[in-house]
Design a protein around this nucleic acid. Structure first.
Lengths: 224, 224
DNA sequence: AGGATCAACCTTACGGCGTAAGGACATCAG
DNA sequence: CTGATGTCCTTACGCCGTAAGGTTGATCCT
């Protein structure tokens, strides 16, 4: 009665941890981390929610895997570049990646189990600084300032309503409406004379702070 | 039959938005943001979950209020201090407050509706910089770098397992176990020669980056 | 005093969440 | 052919935020 399935192959390509992780990243990218539920992820890969547990231990493990995938997207610093060039490049790239994966910002630094791509990345960055003559302590300082700045900037950038410069104007006006000129004069000044200026883009602030930090590190590294 | 309640006063002190917000902050401080549920918050203030909706519009509004409460904890920069002193003081205080309210880190910058304490705070910081001769643009740059650094540092600090310096040793050893010395040499070097050193405390890194940024801002402010 | 108004609070219920427990079934090794 | 293994499914539990509507007690206007 039931036809033999063996002959007309429905090739039964099974799922894999990698496929699940990639689908999870895509889903979080599109709809935010709060929309990443086991049920929706299952649907996205064509499987019931509970079947996902064949490939990930639980949701924490899923997030760990997603974070390591993101770390894997970051190019390792090229060994030929000057440390300053390499660190600037890395900073710009990380910021770009974090704006592609906004959900990752609170997660990347807070995983308690580090994946292989994560470890490789940290090691390469430290190696770049050590090779440039940074002491172990200074390399630690440098890594701390740089990443604090990069993640912090990404965090602030994420709060903006949408990426378009047009809608940032709307936000500014909304803030201005909430904040009467006479009560918050410096706030209004900032909004009217800086943020509402035609070419304004908050993202441009990134370079200022980054160069400030890199210059500071340069002089710190020369001092010993 | 039922005794008149008017005489023997059970004074029926009603709840208020402020009380709800304070209880919510306390609950999140103690058990983390994920433990802050309407039911548990209701229990904490002696009321059923649904009754909370008399005082807050929904959970988003609750979070908005909590964030504004935290901003209210930050002292406004004293108008008599040099900008550098005032900004350093503020940075240290914000970091301290963020370590008391770890749940606030991802939230403070990302509320779309700003409370009065939040606006007052931003205005005072901007005022301090403007009064010190910073142009509007430079004040914006400065505020951006400083807050990016502060929030980013707090974010990284939060990832540590617990605040005790003893347990940071455990974490370091766990990482070292995950990361074999030959495969990640610089990582191991950092852990063994820096992090596992007796007096090490990641919190100490904060001052290095902060002074680096403040010095950078000082020279930027003199340049025009 | 009597009655209306109204804010504070409660009960019940709904759909969605992560995941524990256990069963079905295809594939493959012996 | 037989049993083992790994992938996937079904069902169910106790959480979550909150919509809808009911009860109660204080206050104010006759």
């Amino acid at each position: 009665m039931t036809p033999r399935p063996a002959r007309d192959r429905a090739p039964r390509i099974p799922l894999s941890r990698q496929k699940v992780l990639h689908a999870a990243v895509a889903l979080a990218d599109e709809n935010g981390l709060e929309a990443l539920t086991m049920r929706k992820l299952g649907e996205a890969v064509g499987v019931e929610a509970m079947s996902l547990y064949t490939h990930v231990a639980n949701k924490e493990d899923l997030l760990d895997g997603m974070v390591d995938l993101v770390f894997g997207e970051i190019d390792l610093p090229s060994p030929h570049d000057h440390w300053k060039t390499a660190m600037r490049q890395r900073a710009v790239e990380v910021r770009q990646i974090l704006s592609r994966h906004r959900w990752a910002i609170g997660l990347m630094e807070s995983r308690s189990s580090l994946g292989p791509a994560t470890l490789r990345h940290h090691d390469a960055v430290l190696g770049c600084l050590r090779k440039a003559g940074f002491s172990v302590a200074l390399a630690a300082h440098a890594y701390s300032v740089l990443d604090s700045y990069i993640y912090g900037f990404a965090l602030q950038e994420r709060s903006l309503p949408f990426d378009t410069p047009a809608s940032s104007t709307e936000l500014a006006q909304a803030i201005l409406a909430q904040a009467p000129t006479d009560q918050y004069p410096h706030m209004s000044e900032l909004v009217t004379e800086h943020i509402l200026r035609p070419g304004y883009d908050y993202g441009d602030e990134f370079a200022f702070g980054l160069d400030l930090i890199l210059d500071g590190l340069e002089s710190a590294s020369r001092q010993r």
